[in-house]
Amino acid sequence: MQAIRREAPAKLNLALDILGRRKDGYHEMRMVMQTVSLCDTVAVRERAAGFTLRTNGDFLVPKGKKTLEQQAAEAFFQEAGLPMPGLEVLLEKRTPAYAGMGGGSADVAALLRILRDTRCPGMSDDQLERIGLAVGSDVPFCLRGGTALAEGRGEILTDLPPLPPCTFVICKPDFGISTPLLFAQMDGRRLTKHPDVEGMLDALRAGELAVVAGCLGNVFEEVLPPEYKDVFAIRARLMELGALNAAMSGSGPTVFGIFRRREEAETAAAALRGEYSQTYLAEPVGKLH
Rank of each mutant, 00 (worst) to 15 (best):
M1T: 13
M1H: 14
A3S: 14
I4D: 07
R6H: 07
E7S: 13
P9G: 11
N13S: 09
K23N: 14
G25A: 06
M31T: 14
L38N: 02
C39A: 15
D40L: 03
D40M: 08
E46Y: 11
A48M: 02
A49V: 04
G50M: 07
T55P: 00
N56W: 06
N56S: 13
L60K: 03
K65N: 04
L68D: 14
E69F: 00
Q70C: 07
F76G: 02
L82H: 08
P83T: 07
P83Q: 14
P83F: 04
P85V: 10
P85M: 11
G86Y: 02
E88R: 08
V89A: 05
E92Y: 14
R94F: 00
T95G: 02
G100R: 00
G103Q: 01
G103W: 06
S105E: 09
A110D: 03
L115H: 03
R116S: 09
P121H: 06
G122D: 11
Q127R: 15
Q127M: 09
V135C: 03
V135K: 09
D138C: 08
G152C: 10
G152L: 10
L157R: 05
T158M: 11
T158C: 04
D159W: 07
D159C: 05
L160M: 14
P162Y: 04
C171M: 01
L181C: 02
M186V: 03
M186D: 13
D187F: 07
T192S: 14
H194D: 04
D202M: 06
D202I: 01
R205K: 14
A206S: 13
E208D: 14
A210N: 10
A213M: 09
G214H: 08
F220Q: 08
E221Q: 09
L224Q: 03
Y228E: 04
L238A: 02
E240T: 13
L241S: 02
N245G: 13
N245I: 04
G250R: 03
G250M: 05
S251N: 09
G252R: 03
T254K: 09
T254P: 12
V255K: 09
A265C: 13
T267L: 14
A268E: 07
A270C: 10
G274L: 08
Y276F: 10
T279M: 12
A282I: 01
